[in-house]
Nucleic acid binder design. Structure first.
Lengths: 415, 415
DNA sequence: AAATATTACTTGCATTTTGCAATTAATTGT
DNA sequence: ACAATTAATTGCAAAATGCAAGTAATATTT
């Protein structure tokens, strides 16, 4: 028998209420603070309906009244926001050389943040122990309040198996499955794994994409490697295995050098932090026109670039051109309206952005180029942690069936 | 004030019914024929609800009872399908050298099909006249029955302006806007413009993607140019301007030749019908090992390829490798689970497919490659016409507010 | 300072839709 | 012929929304 894709479900009367509650929560989340009246007009439901829903949401500890808002004429609105006191989200970020654990309230405030280095001789199991230790200190006080734990991992990350498939420098993590270990340890709490660049993209979309009214946003992180996240209509695009957006392994030169992934001329070979430094170190040897030496660090290159060092400028601009090549291909495939560049290469600032932009402009059809805004991700916070928090919210608070009246209060964790 | 993306709407009780009606119609459409009981279990609504909805849909002329279905035990199901008698969809396909006009019933049966060549000296306005003439013959008899007119255009097609932005051989069409002319002429009928490769992709998803349970399907057409359509969860991905999927203008070699689009080494320069023929014609000159001449046509090349002609085989395989390069980049960006190749190059058959597949396999990480099925689009129908028909359905019958009880009967066209 | 206009929120009632449960319909197997 | 099984229908209760009227709070006008 033929199987059908996505057997879309009908909606019941009970489902209507849950659906509307989740829409209301999304509006409050996006606006930060807003009134019943605003919600009513925004989602086109009767004020009476909103009043009833909000009453229940306040009772459930998900929403709270925070202040009176100012207006022109008439009665003041009562400001509503997500309840900052009742529920919490824990987020873990694993990187190659360090990990972080953060505690968020529903508003996205960071209540606690611990960052630890991962010494090179430390086994994944030991690191796991340290992560769990920190989480446990939160759970002692807050067990009934934790909505879920978000765990972000570096890519290429196979969502289906929750496994990293190419962690070149720390292959141990390809064997030790952090997610399933966490699931085993915390069997009553929901664990949500996610890919770091995609989570960062989600955070960027919230911070910049919404305001710029982006429908198809591309976040590109250039640092140790090149990663990306695509946000379409506010939803992160994952692909069939959760591994979409691997720009680092798109080729810009089929005659280029062989990459570890099997392909030739991968973007990552030209535009990573390592590639830049190596190239500069090599060329610094017999070059009197530069202040950089063959031991130059990334920070050195950044400084040199900003004071106009010839070698630094030439090399960084070369990287900008390579990056632009990769971006142009991306553009022609997904037709974005907003491109945000982030991660370590942001340190090169607007000059770098302009170099990329110029090169992109030259290679894209005008009517497509005109539609694109390209910016740097000028955000202080850790985008990955914030994005991972948002990811948890999306899979808990914003899922209609999870916000049935009374459900969070009754069932507490593990929704 | 900050504008918010996609002000998601709440759902009213009236909306519930309309929503459920549209879900029911989707199920019937996908299954072709099915029973009330099947729909009930599929979309998880009470049988009573389905009975009531179907009664109304039959009355509205959208659904009809067609037969008794066979089963194991118990009462026979009454087969339901979309009503083939009441409503009609007209579809227009514009190509560089010809146009087609087709008439469909709701089941997707082609009731009438006219294909006309566009002589090179014929102006767009003249062509428009001929198209309208054919449409009018349908309207005389069926005016009250036409749900909408779908018009598919070759890319790069800017959906926002409904304008073709790079029609190299027939620049006249960049000026003459077929869509707005049609809108002006038929001001009471809804016109739905769409991009041909994307529409074809939609048709392919219906015919093959659903059965193969694809979540992220890639349809790539190789012919005059290289185009593609990406279908995610049954929805065509359009990008911000409706211009996504332009693989033809992704570069596989940044040091390659300059393309008309401004970029270097675009895939289309290596893998189009024209590129293949030119290359073969050139090499056929001083080559005794081939039966092909410097006047060889595409059909000649196909025949030669199938009898193992050296030059044909070498050149076609070269194209396969180039194409694979483009596909690999696509894969790493969107992580598909199904890739369907279509259009003229299908004539080279499974050998060609295997050559592409082999080359893709070599350049993609194993865990990603294993997830992908690659096939030829072995479908007899005109995929673009069929896809354009489906596109109209999606924007009419499957939109909840359009299928409120009685609405189609009352308002007829122009929903 | 009181009255009026304006906007925000709340409450009671009617409408509507769904689900449940009982009923009728149609078919196979014993 | 009768039980068992599955499909479809119908009457009734439950539940959620919208409407309209009412209360609350603030600015503006008189």
């Amino acid at each position: 028998m033929i199987k059908f894709y996505q057997p879309q479900k009908g909606i019941s009367l009970k489902g209507v209420q849950e659906f509307n509650r989740s829409v209301i929560l999304k509006v409050i989340h996006e606006r930060g603070v807003c009134s019943r009246a605003t919600i009513s007009s925004e989602i086109e439901l009767d004020q009476a309906t909103i009043t009833r829903a909000i009453t229940q949401l306040i009772e459930d500890g998900i929403v709270e009244e925070v202040s009176l808002m100012k207006g022109q004429r008439g009665r003041r609105s009562i400001g509503l926001s997500l309840d900052s006191g009742r529920f919490r989200v824990i987020v873990v970020r694993l990187q190659r050389l360090s990990f972080s654990v953060a505690l968020f309230d529903l508003l996205g405030n960071t209540l606690d943040l611990v960052e630890n280095a991962i010494p090179s001789q430390q086994s994944p199991k030991q690191t796991f122990g340290k992560i769990v230790e920190i989480i446990d200190t939160h759970l002692v006080k807050l067990k009934e309040s934790i909505i879920g734990i978000g765990v972000s991992l570096p890519g290429p990350f196979l969502e289906k198996d929750e496994r990293i498939i190419l962690m070149t420098e720390s292959p141990d993590w390809q064997v030790f499955n952090l997610i399933s270990e966490l699931r085993g340890y915390y069997d009553e709490i929901s664990i949500f794994s996610n890919h770091d660049a995609k989570s960062a993209a989600l955070a960027v979309w919230r911070e910049m994409g919404i305001a710029l009214e982006s429908k198809v946003m591309l976040y590109i992180s250039v640092g140790q490697g090149v990663g990306s996240g695509l946000v379409v209509n506010g939803l992160v695009f994952k692909g069939s295995q959760g591994i979409a957006g691997e720009v680092g392994h798109t080729s810009i030169d089929m005659n280029g050098p062989l990459c570890k992934c099997g392909n030739y001329g991968c973007l990552e070979l030209y535009t990573s932090r390592l590639a830049l430094i190596r190239s500069i170190q090599q060329k610094a040897k017999n070059n009197s026109e530069t202040s950089l030496t063959e031991d130059a660090s990334f920070a050195d290159v950044v400084s040199a670039y900003h004071v106009g060092d010839d070698l630094a400028v030439t090399e960084v601009e070369r990287v900008a051109n390579y990056l632009a090549q990769g971006i142009v291909n991306y553009i022609n495939l997904i037709n974005p309206d907003l491109i945000i560049l982030g991660d370590e290469f942001m340190a090169f600032g607007d000059t770098f952005l302009k170099a990329v932009d110029k090169s992109v402009k030259a290679s894209v059809l005008p009517s497509i180029y005109q539609n694109i805004r390209m910016q740097l991700a000028n955000i202080e916070e850790d985008l990955v942690l914030k994005g991972s928090f948002l990811y948890v919210l999306e899979h808990t608070l914003f899922v209609p069936s999870n916000v049935a009246p009374g459900k969070l209060m009754e069932e507490g964790l593990g929704i």
